[in-house]
Design a binder for these strands. Structure first.
Length: 868
RNA sequence: GCCCCGAUGGUGAAAUUGGUAAACACAGCAGACUUAAAAUCUGCCGACCGCAAGGUCUUGCCGGUUCGAUUCCGGCUCGGGGCACCA
């Protein structure tokens, strides 16, 4: 055993052993319990970032721990390889997205391997390869025929200068990021997944996901947004329009119907279009509403504006004339693109009505009273007893809901309805680097799905996009084809699919990644699925996880697999953040400096007081900790850290810095500390092994001091097992091992028994660290005299007899304040504990002159004496 | 704007069910070893008062429940994630 800890050699040796033995290649083994551990696959952006290192280390710790519990563990990896960054890189460097992507994959794969992850690389999946996406196209055609996919118009960001559709991310302050042109909303035909048909199930089966964080389930429930309300129809004023009709709205507050004072429609609503005929002013307003991005955050934060139309509708119950307004806060795609406005009981309506002097009529008695003042109060939105509502006066919410429904039904002007906030999933993208949509447009046959024997529709890989629309739409060799049904000349669809589609089913493909007979081999899929543990960033809490759940149900309904949900347990990891440093430029912008180039100045207590740039010695501003990003230039390159300290040190630091679901702050000093700890472990083991391996431990004849050491060993096992196995709190598990190391380093090494105890201690350290720092543990295990390898060793078991303690220290409080401690035999009764506490010197001092009202004894913990 | 989450020493954090706030580290300070440096080891380390024993205060802010609140409840402030074409 080498005297120094040499991570480079140790890690290379361990990794080549695993490679040679194919240690992490798994196959279905009937009868052996499976554990499918999956980390969200990366987008091959160029090189690994710290978020990847964190994600994959967490997954690896769980995988290796489960393997030590004796399970058949599957941990696969792949590449979410389609997406916009490849097109951007292509435009910047004049290189084809395919080439750029494949090169990135090759490099990032070497990086992942250097982390020593227990991955079955034979199952690698790359979503931009035809053998993957052909099954996505196959499913598309099946779903299209079933009607689960359909075509309708959708709204997109249109850049009028570049003549192209932009992603929300590419719209900055309402303008195109490259052209600077004001963005317009434009309607184009798209394909949609009918996810709303699964809304009810996506909602209800959340209740069965016990292994998911409550927070994520809440977000999904709110996103799906099931609400019970009323569909209400407002008949048009025939005379003023020259045609009759009904304006339909949906409301969750039909009890406030008698307080509706106007109705508002979205700019895209047919009624708005109708009203704008021969009304240039209104038309101008509608056009203005069409500028800006389609992102809801932009729409919802813009100033609420509106314009009256000359139109009126009739109140369905009173027959009163209500004016029709066009308002920019009404969303066309939610409900019916129109709302009934009750300014007295809805904050947005209140704001709008106040701005445009529309009437406000209170119809609910709230905790704020019967009146509505000039300032909005939260109480106005409460449920309460109806007032000013004619025959409905005095009814509560439920009573009014029912009575108003009866009244509306009688007039055929409304009925109760369940509404979802969830919208169908539009997947058409006018982009090149994505999976082609397998549809052929034929003049006589319409939209024809590409037959199975003609799949895949292969994406040409030698194309360099230029940012002006989709290149496929300009490639006759791609789009010219004949109709699969009638054989006439036809045009292939040139849109590609949303990249969320690929990431919605990759977890199933890993079960049978090379299967050529279908999307998945049902036997393999059912063997491995559902995923036992899924790990990824919290930023995916809604969209990706909802789409993957949806796809799983689609595949189930195709008969491809039998489970209802894809991910049994979910762990959402926090972000990796780091300090930022900048200087303000003359133009007011900021110049960001990488932490690696900045020197820190501290005061006597170690508090950071200033920072300067190493290269010029001049001060820089400290910008606070933020998510590692290119824009803030605060990224720390994991490769540099692995090269300098080794993978084990990086993994240990990452797992120790904070629990996985919290954000994790990068610290150069912290990684030094992690490295120091591994060197300490190595040094202790080296000293121990150098003296020859000891004989077996005789647990029956331990001295009190030796019992203390052994208790420390088994306390560490107990705690670390709980922390890793149950709570995924790797930071406290590591702290336990550190505490154990502190004990072992101080323990005697004189007698054979001492040395046997140290052997047990060091084996425990190696085993408890094995999932976290697998390379050093691999090496230590051999040095400690084991023939087998540590990845196949069993996780250590707690010897309860080692934990027994004869005496306990209890805390004594007076009125909840700590006043002393008493040592008591573990067997002491309540009465004995209370008696001992009462005569404690400090307790007597603080209870002098007071009478004791109550004594609370918490066994094994404390005594609280209540006195006054 | 809407939904979700978070806030504890100089720093990262810990605290089974409401029961000793600050475990384990990092940084810092003092010392040992060394010709020196590195490495390593030992001690101190929330704030304030005190020679000390000890005391008072302290978990973003305000209030409540409780013998006892970092933990539960109500109301704020600030920070983060998501908002359907970033992945």
């Amino acid at each position: 055993m080498h005297e120094q800890y040499q991570p480079r050699e140790i890690e290379a040796a361990a990794q080549s052993h695993w490679d040679a033995q194919k240690s992490f290649v798994v196959s279905e083994q009937p009868g052996k319990e499976t554990f499918y551990c999956l980390s969200m696959f990366p987008y091959p952006s160029g090189k690994l970032h710290m978020g990847h290192v964190r994600n994959y280390t967490i997954g690896d710790v769980i995988s290796r721990y489960q393997r030590m519990l004796g399970k058949n563990v599957l941990q696969p990896m792949g590449w979410d390889a389609f997406g916009m960054p490849a097109e951007n890189a292509a435009m910047k460097n004049n290189v084809a997205p395919a080439k750029w992507t494949y090169e990135n994959i090759a490099y990032m794969k070497t990086q992942l391997k250097s982390l020593g992850l227990a991955i079955d690389w034979t199952r690698e999946v790359t979503t931009c390869k035809p053998d993957y996406y052909r099954w996505e196209q196959w499913l598309f055609t099946r779903l299209f025929e079933k009607g689960v996919i359909y075509r309708k118009n959708g709204t997109v960001n249109w850049d009028p200068v570049d003549q192209t559709v932009l992603a929300n991310e590419q719209v900055i302050d309402g303008r195109g990021w490259r052209s600077g042109a004001v963005i317009e909303k434009r309607e184009i035909p798209m394909y949609y997944f009918k996810i709303t048909a699964y809304a009810e199930e996506l909602l209800s089966s959340l209740d069965d996901l016990d292994g998911w964080p409550e927070q994520v389930k809440t977000m999904q429930r709110n996103w799906i947004g099931k609400s019970r309300g009323m569909e209400v129809s407002f008949p048009y004023d025939v005379a003023s329009i020259g045609s009759a009709g009904k304006l339909n709205v949906f409301t969750t507050r039909p009890d406030t119907l008698m307080g509706a004072t106007y109705v508002a429609v979205a700019a895209e609503h047919p009624l708005a279009t109708l009203a704008a005929q021969g009304n240039p002013e209104l038309q101008a307003f509608i056009d203005e509403c069409k500028s800006g991005s389609v992102a809801e955050a932009d729409v919802a934060t813009q100033e609420k504006r509106g314009m009256p139309t000359p139109l009126f509708v009739e109140h369905p119950l009173t027959g009163d004339k209500l004016p029709v307004w066009v308002a920019n806060y009404v969303l066309m795609h939610y409900g019916d693109g129109a709302v009934m406005a009750v300014p007295a009981h809805d904050e947005r309506d209140f704001e709008f009505a106040s701005k445009y002097q529309l009437p406000i009529k209170a119809v609910v008695r709230t905790s704020a009273g019967d009146e509505v003042g000039s300032e909005w109060q939260a109480a106005y939105g409460e449920h309460g007893t109806l007032i000013n509502s004619g025959e409905f006066d005095g009814l509560d919410f439920v009573g009014a809901f029912d009575a108003i429904e009866v009244a509306l039904l009688k007039k055929h002007l409304g009925k109760s309805r369940t509404q979802f906030r969830l919208r169908d999933w539009g997947i058409s993208r006018q982009r090149y680097w994505g999976c082609p949509i397998p549809i052929v447009h034929c003049e006589s046959c319409g939209d024809v799905p590409v037959p199975e024997d003609q799949l895949p529709v292969v994406l040409p890989e030698d194309v360099v996009p230029d940012g002006a629309g989709s290149p496929l739409a300009r490639m006759p060799e791609f789009y010219e084809c004949s109709c699969p049904q009638c054989g006439a000349p036809a045009k292939r669809e040139t849109d590609t699919m949303d990249t969320f589609v690929e990431s919605s089913w990759y977890f199933a493909r890993y079960a049978s990644p090379h299967y050529t007979g279908g999307m998945v081999d049902p036997a393999a899929a059912n063997h491995w699925l559902p995923v036992d543990q899924y790990i990824g960033g919290i930023e995916h809490a809604i969209l990706h996880l909802l789409y993957a759940r949806f796809f799983h149900k689609l595949m189930r309904d195709e008969g491809l697999l039998s489970s209802d949900e894809p991910f049994k347990n979910l762990l959402t990891q926090g972000m990796v953040v780091a300090e930022t440093y900048y200087r303000v430029l003359e133009n007011g912008g900021k110049d960001w400096f990488n932490p690696a180039d900045v020197e820190i100045e501290r005061d006597a207590k170690g508090k950071v007081i200033a920072a300067k740039l190493a290269s010029d010695g001049l001060p820089v501003e400290i910008g606070g900790t933020e998510k590692m990003s290119k824009s803030k230039n605060n990224g720390v390159d994991p490769q540099a850290m692995i090269d300098a300290y080794g993978a084990d040190t990086c993994r240990l630091f990452m797992m120790f810095a904070s629990p996985p679901d919290m954000s994790c702050e990068w610290s150069d000093a912290g990684i030094e500390g992690a490295n120091r700890f591994l060197r300490r472990v190595w040094r202790l083991a080296h000293g121990h092994v150098g003296k020859g391996l000891p004989a077996a431990l005789d647990t029956a004849s331990l001295s009190d001091v030796q019992k203390d050491v052994r208790r420390a060993i088994h306390q560490a096992i107990r705690q670390a097992t709980q922390d890793i196995g149950q709570h995924h709190k790797f930071n406290t598990a590591i702290a336990q091992v550190m505490t154990l190391m502190n004990v072992l380093e101080k323990a005697a090494q004189d007698s054979a028994q001492d040395r046997a105890l140290l052997q047990e201690g060091l084996e425990t350290v190696a085993l408890l660290l094995a999932p976290i720092t697998p390379h050093i543990s691999h090496e230590l295990w051999q040095e400690l005299g084991h023939e087998d390898v540590i990845i196949d060793a069993a996780w250590p078991a707690v010897d309860d007899s080692a934990l027994v303690q004869d005496n306990l220290t209890l805390v004594v409080q007076v009125n909840g304040k700590l006043r002393g401690q008493i040592d008591m035999p573990a067997s002491a009764s309540r009465e004995e504990i209370e008696a001992a506490a009462r005569v404690n010197e400090n307790v007597l001092r603080f209870t002098e002159g007071l009478s004791i009202r109550k004594v609370i004894v918490v066994p094994g913990k404390l005594v609280n004496i209540v006195a006054n």
